[in-house]
Amino acid sequence: MGQSPRDTLARMLLMRRFEEMVITLARAHKLGRQHLAIGNEATGAAALMQLAPGDLIYTTHRNHGHMIARGVDPGKALAEILGRAGGLCGGKGGTWHMTDPSLGFQSTSAMVGGSIGLSVGGGFALKHKKTGNVAVALFGDGALDEGIAYEALNIASLYALPVLFLCENNSKEGEAQTSRLATKELVAVPKALKIPCTRVDGGDPEAVALAVETALAHVRLGAGPYFLEAQLVRWPGSHQIVHEFTTGVTDVAAAWDDAKASNEHAAWHRTDPILRTARTLIARGILTRDDVTALDNEAAVIIAKARAFAEASPYPKPEAALTGAFVPA
């Protein structure tokens, strides 16, 4: 596949500016409990940009980044987070349950382990229909605490289902660890069930893209599931119920301007995948500083338009609450 480094960084910037807008809007509209994907951009963009039409995606409460990475309309996504009629789900799903089936998104479950279980069903259907497509399960390391994870991995392996299990591991051992596996090697579990596994630096979009390409080739060949662990650095603000700009508003100039990089958020600036990627691409001569600034400005413009759309979208009529439990007869 191989999307260009420029396109990948552009998508990562869009994801970042989207989540920053979520912080702004959530504070303005007094909404909380969003689960932001700040720091997960390299993995989300590199993985989801290379999926094909017809591939199915199963994600979690931390889904905003995946939506934007795959190309969902950011205006409709912001409107959904605000509970507006113009949102992806007409305001019924909200931050936790956004979905866009036109781009392959199936259920967006906020139940820990939910996406893993459902992805196996998607894989089963795709295999049955012989479409050559894959089902992609996105989940955090905590999902492996749930019994459903073991059951899903086992049956995917047993039936050689076309499923890519993509674990975004944001639990560094010792600090803010949310998963409690007796083994420190997440991949030990799928490995024991005969699923091929790879671990990748989730902050490096090129490494992720390559790993996902390899994994998808395996799965599309009909060789069964594949498990990829992307190791992420947890964004220090990720635990908040009402979010703040814990590490400041991203300034891409921190990628080259030491004065901007060495403020109180210096530790984050070293690991922030956006800045890391910008530094790498500039050092290699693939992009200039001006290119990065221009990409960032484009992202900011798209997100500003998205905000305008979302805030102009009306709330659904209250009576809409009473419809939609069942498919109309």
């Binding site: 959904e80 509970g83 507006r84 009629a85 949102g87 789900c89 007409g90 305001g91 019924k92 799903g93 909200g94 931050t95 936790w96 349950h97 709330y315 659904p316 009529k317 209250p318 009576e319 809409a320 609450a321 009473l322 419809t323 939609g324 439990a325």
Partner: peptide, 16 residues
């Protein structure tokens, strides 16, 4: 509550 899943949107939630 009426027999419907609870919607996210604040006015829909309030309605039920």
């Amino acid at each position: 509550r009426p027999p419907v899943p609870i919607a996210f949107s604040p006015p829909l939630e309030a309605h039920v």
